[in-house]
Amino acid sequence: MSGYRFDRLKVLVVDDNAHMRKLVITILQAFGVTQIHEADSGQRAWTVLRESNPDVLVLDWVMEGMSGIELVQMIRTSPQTPNPFVPVIMLTGHTHIDHVRQARDAGVNEFIAKPVSVKTMMSRLVAVIEHPRPYVRTSAYFGPCRRRRGADEYRGPERRAESKQQAAE
């Protein structure tokens, strides 16, 4: 028994595929999550997010219109965001390292590479509860620290390409 009070958790599930939403919601409900909101697009998710202010987002990447990545960027940086720190677990069929980097750079906290399983869903939920990452604010980025370890030890100049480019401008 882990003792997590998942019944206190409010989760927003965003996927344009109704079946995938049903599957994720079924798993979350079995974990004991009772407060579940859902949205079938990035635009709708933004509205629901501002109305319900969830504790965790489970978000698909590829959707028509606003993608999951664009939604995360809005959550992290928009002045209208209800919570720029809300943990985002991204569901994705993308498995290439470049895609993982892209999502991480947008401010995604954790990934679930499809196929979705009970074990990975639980492990990512526990990860955002037990191992939250520090946040970073630079001229070019705001979001969870993109390094898994040792980020709090770094005190040097910005070295990321986009940051250097902005500094030069």
Partner: peptide, 22 residues
Amino acid sequence: ARQQPIELFMPPNMLKAKVGGG
């Protein structure tokens, strides 16, 4: 590279406070 301020901080873990356990 020009020195740029980097703000690194740990927000309070509201999630853990809410669900406890572990």
